[in-house]
Design a binder for these strands. Sequence first.
DNA 1: CCGTATCCCAGCAGATACTG
DNA 2: CAGTATCTGCTGGGATACGG
Lengths: 130, 130
Amino acid sequence: MSQPNTQESCQAEHTSACTVREVLDRVGGKWSIGIIIAASDGPVRFTELERSIEGISRRMLTLTLRHLERDGLLTRTVFPTVPPRVEYVATEMARELYESLVSLTGWAQRHREAIAAARDAYDRERGLAG
Amino acid sequence: MSQPNTQESCQAEHTSACTVREVLDRVGGKWSIGIIIAASDGPVRFTELERSIEGISRRMLTLTLRHLERDGLLTRTVFPTVPPRVEYVATEMARELYESLVSLTGWAQRHREAIAAARDAYDRERGLAG
DNA sequence: CCGTATCCCAGCAGATACTG
DNA sequence: CAGTATCTGCTGGGATACGG
């Protein structure tokens, strides 16, 4: 959720590294992806999200929702009823983003074991000898 | 660079959100992507990286290199010469990862203005009235 | 129901100095 | 050259309590 240093440090020429980081700065937060997914199938209410996300605190839910809304990834709709009713839904832009992100899952699944093995090896070398 | 809460909170059923987060936990750090790219075209030395990355500190360079090496994304080769010579090169796995990440640049470029506009609108509403 | 406010901490990250 | 050590600040994020 750190939105600082993106624009100023990306001076056009630095290739795509900066562009990738721009995206990561927006959805790299711990809960962003989960929320986008949950709000991709249609409007969801605050409390629904709170229950379905599992482990998220009220505070982080609100904060992340605000960030995503600010970036135009989520649309917030308030129904002036009592008790209040607020619905969030992923924008088209957000759904496209998620599609792009999903290509990462293929990579993750293909290499999950290799990563674990690398870690094991690394930790053994550093753990015993060094 | 936060590698905690990935495995324990991903209990199989939670869809791809967790998988995406696994990747993000490994490569979401501020400098990871830049380093992977720099080490994708062939071996690079420590000081080369330090100069080409622009803005990175010695400390963060070392830390990020260690993380990436631990996850099997970078290969570290030490030449026992004097002065010492250490080379880093992206593994095949890392290059594949980067290919996947590049699909994000398309999204970012298509929506960069929309995001900026959304932010402007959001900030205006909150800044003046609210 | 849908938040905000406050306190607090861990971990990322910068600056600087020292070493094999 | 290629790091490590130390000190410090900042912010993401958890816990809890309160408010419209």
